[in-house]
Amino acid sequence: MITRCRPLLGTFVEITAPEGHVSAVDAAFAAIAHVHARMSFHQDDSDLALLRKTSAGDVVRLDAETIRVLRLALDLHGQSGGLFDVAVVGPALVRSGFLPRCDIGRLSDYRGTSADLAILDDQHVRVEKRVLVDLGGIAKGHAVDRAVDVLQGMGVPEGLVNAGGDLRAFGDRDWPVALRDADDVARISVAARNCAIASSANLLNRRRHRGQPQSPHIGAQGRAVLCDERVTVVARLCAIADAMTKVAMADMPLAQRLLATYGGHALQTPHHESHT
């Protein structure tokens, strides 16, 4: 096996494949680099920058992959009763300082929610109200899925793609995966086989804004979710696993219900005492 690691999507992306598949690994990294370029919040030539520059009522042309991720995000928005909202996360994280201000003038100009995004076809979206979209809760998972598609499409029999903790394994074997708890300690290992695993935690990633503790995870009414435990979701697709960790952090019963339809489940973290 070879493992390569590159800094992409704001984190470290690892791709593991059998020896002799280096060109497929390169192609898989290129697919991830494409997601990075199109769906970065920070880069001012990304689709998200285009989207936030679009005036209310206008139609904007985006990359087909961005549309694909937006479709899934809007579906999750509907299914979660509005809890998962890529347009609410943007302003909330800029306000709390987890995302940069970029070219954003007044945050109060961005009043749109996911409900104000109308996908017209595979390349066009109409923006009913101005939106500040952040795909940080789903794009990493999508990038992992794309990389796996590329690897499998190029005949790689087994492999693992890990975008900073959101990963997907494929092939006829078990992959040992350590779960890093919210306090940064890995206590548990699971065997992954043909599935995606995503984890979220924010115990060690908090900051204060106007005296209130903030985290990079946003729940109902745009409020930060302060969750002291790691949340781990197993699903077929990494985009689902990634997105559902955000739902699970805010509302675990809802996440369990949704995962039953999307295919997957949240891992219950055993209490440490049960292993002593």
Partner: peptide, 18 residues
């Protein structure tokens, strides 16, 4: 436990910043 068939430990957890 992490060296079964491979050299690199796979970790799932909060995203590390690059």
């Amino acid at each position: 436990p992490f060296r079964l068939n491979q050299d690199i430990p796979n970790i799932s957890g909060a995203t590390l910043s690059s």
